[in-house]
Simulated scan of single mutants.
Amino acid sequence: MAEEEVQVFGFRSGPFSLRVELALKLKAVDYQHIEEDLLNNKSDLLLKYNPIYKKVPVLVHNGNPISESLVILEYIEHNWTHNPIFPAHPYDRALARFWAKFIDDTVVPAVHKISGSTEEEREKAIEEAQKTLEPLENELGNKKFFGGEEIGLVDIVGLILAGWIPAIEEALGFELLNTHKLPNLKKWTEEFVNHRVAKQVMPQKDALVAFLKNVVLNRKN
């Protein structure tokens, strides 16, 4: 069988392309990472492979491009069926898709609102984000991961919570995930960043904090 060519056009300080890379790592699929300069110089190949949105991630499999992280995760699951990241039962799969979409449509905007808020607005934005996270807190319960004992779709999509929220907290000097209000999610973030495979793709916290501080500084200037 001919060797497959798998490329990921991504951005190592961004959570969306790392979803794709984590899924490939969990399935032990070899791939080539192609780093994109999203701020100053998007490559011609990125613009060719994703002419609609012109952003990462883009998975290119044997020359065929797929964009949008949730769509790519579906493709990865169906194309490489070993080491599944989706639940086996159709109902559980539907629930996983629901929570993945909830993270992207509701949680991510709430976190962005905090990072873009002034100091006067921040306390209210944090309270709103914590309320937004409560359904995930309840869904997780006392499970190790949303996928059970191993990382699954919701965990992969939620890596923005595990890696980026702690870094945003440190960069901007506030606390969102605390053991008093969101104990399950707080424990989950610790399990996630210490997972043997997640550690291979997650950026170092110090580097991410420096990147986020730079983004906030540039936004103010």
Rank of each mutant, 00 (worst) to 15 (best):
Y49I: 12
Y49F: 13
Y49Q: 01
Y49W: 01
Y49R: 07
Y49C: 08
N50W: 10
N50L: 01
N50K: 09
N50S: 10
P51K: 09
P51N: 11
I52M: 12
Y53D: 01
Y53L: 04
K54R: 07
K55T: 09
K55V: 04
K55S: 07
K55F: 07
P57F: 01
P57Y: 02
P57W: 04
P57I: 06
V58F: 05
V58I: 03
L59I: 09
L59F: 08
V60A: 10
V60Y: 08
H61V: 06
H61M: 07
H61L: 09
H61W: 08
H61S: 05
N62K: 11
N62F: 11
G63I: 11
G63C: 12
N64V: 15
N64L: 12
P65M: 13
I66S: 12
I66M: 13
I66Y: 12
S67Y: 06
S67Q: 03
S67C: 13
S67K: 03
S67G: 07
E68A: 00
E68F: 00
E68W: 03
S69E: 08
S69C: 12
S69D: 10
S69T: 10
S69Q: 08
L70C: 03
V71P: 02
V71I: 15
I72M: 11
L73N: 05
L73G: 06
L73K: 10
L73T: 07
L73V: 03
E74D: 15
E74W: 04
Y75K: 09
Y75H: 10
Y75D: 08
Y75Q: 09
I76R: 02
I76G: 04
E77A: 01
E77T: 03
H78T: 13
N79Y: 14
N79D: 01
N79C: 07
W80I: 12
W80D: 11
H82I: 00
H82A: 14
H82E: 15
N83V: 02
N83T: 01
P84K: 12
P84L: 00
P84D: 09
P84V: 00
P84S: 11
P84Y: 13
I85C: 14
I85E: 14
I85L: 15
F86L: 15
F86T: 03
P87F: 09
P87K: 03
A88N: 10
A88C: 05
A88M: 00
A88L: 00
A88G: 01
H89C: 10
H89A: 15
H89F: 05
H89D: 15
P90K: 04
Y91G: 05
D92M: 05
R93H: 08
R93N: 06
A94T: 03
A94W: 02
L95F: 06
L95C: 15
A96C: 05
A96V: 02
R97D: 04
R97V: 05
R97H: 11
R97Y: 06
F98W: 14
F98V: 11
F98M: 14
K101N: 15
K101L: 02
K101P: 04
K101Q: 15
K101H: 15
F102K: 05
F102C: 02
F102R: 03
I103H: 06
I103K: 06
I103T: 04
D104C: 07
D104E: 15
D104R: 05
D105M: 05
D105S: 14
D105N: 13
D105I: 00
D105V: 00
V107P: 12
